[in-house]
C-alpha cells in the first residue's frame, strides 16, 4: 500500500463555500493562512515510550534537525499539536496516553511511530501490549519500521503537513472529520 495523497479537487474547493455572497472570497484566504500556520508550526509533545523515542530524539538532533520545519518539542500536552507515540503501548500505559491525548488542545494530531505503536510490532503475542495505539486514539500517520529511521519519521511529518494543508479548517470537527484518513508510511504489504 502506497501513500495516500489527494490533491485538492474542484469539488472539494466547492464544498468549502459558505452560502453567503462573496463568502468564499473571505473564507478561502483565511483558511489558507490558518492551514499554512498550522502546517508550519507543529509542536510535538516530549513523550517517548521506548526505542523509537531514541530515534525521535535523533530526529531532533543536529543531523536531522526537526526545528527546520518549525517543529519543536514541548513538555506539556497543553502546548502540543502533535503526539508522536514512539514505542509499544502496554495496558498499564494506555490510559495515560489517552489522557495525554485528551489534554492536548484541538486541533491535534497523532503519529504512530514504529511497528509497536502501529500494530503491536514484535509484541503482537504479548498479553500486556495493546495492538496498536489506534485502539484508543485516532492516528493520522503510521510510520512503520522497528524503529523507523529518522528520515522515515521526517517523511511522516511532511506527509502530515500536506494533510493539514488540505484540511478543512473552519468546520474541523474533532475525531469525526473526514480528513482522518490515515497516511501509512513504510509498510511493505
Amino acid at each position: 500500500m502506497g501513500v495516500k495523497e489527494k490533491p485538492v479537487t474542484k469539488e472539494e474547493m466547492e464544498s468549502w463555500r459558505i452560502p453567503i455572497p462573496g463568502g468564499a472570497a473571505i473564507i478561502a484566504p483565511v483558511e489558507r493562512v490558518a492551514q499554512w500556520a498550522r502546517k508550519n508550526s507543529l509542536w510535538s509533545l516530549t513523550f517517548g515510550l521506548s526505542c523509537c523515542a531514541i530515534e525521535m530524539m535523533s530526529t531532533a538532533a543536529p543531523r536531522y534537525d526537526l526545528d527546520r520545519f518549525g517543529m519543536i518539542f514541548r513538555a506539556t500536552p497543553r502546548q502540543a499539536d502533535v503526539m508522536i507515540v514512539a514505542g509499544w503501548v502496554s495496558v498499564k500505559m494506555a490510559p495515560y496516553i489517552k489522557r495525554l491525548y485528551d489534554q492536548m488542545p484541538e486541533p491535534k494530531y497523532v503519529i504512530a511511530m514504529g511497528g509497536c505503536a502501529c500494530a503491536g510490532g514484535p509484541y503482537r503475542d504479548s498479553i500486556t501490549i495493546v495492538k496498536g495505539v489506534d485502539h484508543f486514539v485516532p492516528v493520522d500517520v503510521y510510520v512503520y519500521g522497528c524503529p523507523p529511521r529518522p528520515e522515515n519519521l521526517i517523511n511522516g511529518i511532511l506527509k502530515l503537513q500536506d494533510k493539514i494543508a488540505r484540511e478543512h479548517v473552519l468546520t474541523r470537527n474533532g475525531d469525526r472529520a473526514p480528513h482522518r484518513e490515515p497516511i501509512i508510511i513504510g509498510e511493505n504489504a
Binding site: 509499544w88 502496554s90 498479553i127 500486556t128
Partner: peptide, 27 residues
C-alpha cells in the same frame, strides 16, 4: 509501564529467535 512479558515470550520461541527481542531491552 513498558512491561510486555518478554521473559514469557522467550519461552515460546526457539533459542535463536530470542535475539531480536533483546535488542529492545536496553535499546
Amino acid at each position: 509501564y513498558l512491561h510486555r512479558g518478554l521473559e514469557k515470550m522467550f519461552e515460546a520461541r526457539p533459542y535463536r529467535q530470542c535475539i531480536p527481542f533483546t535488542d529492545r531491552l536496553d535499546y
